[in-house]
């Protein structure tokens, strides 16, 4: 229905959740990227170490812990991508902003199915690749 669509459009954007997701995504991406490029870890070990570190980090009370951990892990999956696609910190920041938007769209879909974090990471890096090819 048209009025329902209008109601959907006027729903407030969850800015706090978006900020948490983007920050955690950026941290996860950067950590995985550094572990791979500077410390010489393989992509699988770098991503799982990042995920484990994300679960051990203390968080503030206002931050939803499972959301933060999942976003860090998702960022680390995106960080497994080839360094030819994303390499510089500002590119990682742009990818994280995109990742936050993809997260907001995909998280409510298919609840309880595993692999959604990786699908978010894939969609994000594929979008970044597309933007890079187009520009």
């Amino acid at each position: 229905m048209f009025w329902q669509k209008r109601q959907y459009l006027t729903t407030r954007f969850p800015l706090k959740g978006y900020a948490i997701v983007v920050t955690a995504f950026y941290g996860g991406f950067l950590c995985c990227h550094l572990l791979r490029s500077a410390a010489g870890f393989g992509p699988v070990a770098a991503s799982s170490l990042t995920g484990l570190a994300g679960t051990l980090l203390p968080t503030f009370r206002i931050v939803d812990k499972p959301l933060f951990q999942a976003a860090v892990y998702s960022g680390s999956f995106a960080g497994m991508c080839s360094s030819e696609i994303v390499d510089r910190p500002w590119q990682i920041a742009l990818v994280s902003l995109l990742g936050g938007l993809v997260w907001m769209v995909l998280t409510p879909v298919f609840p309880g199915v595993g692999g959604k974090l990786g699908a978010i990471a894939f969609a994000t890096t594929a979008l970044a690749l597309l933007v890079r090819v187009c520009l």
């Binding site: 696609i85 298919f110 959604k116 699908a119 990471a121 894939f122 969609a123 890096t125 690749l129």
Partner: peptide, 16 residues
């Protein structure tokens, strides 16, 4: 295979 998250997407597809 170049973008990250290929493994996760494969897992998501398997779940679906």
């Amino acid at each position: 295979r170049a973008p990250g998250g290929v493994l996760g997407t494969s897992a998501f597809l398997a779940g679906l």
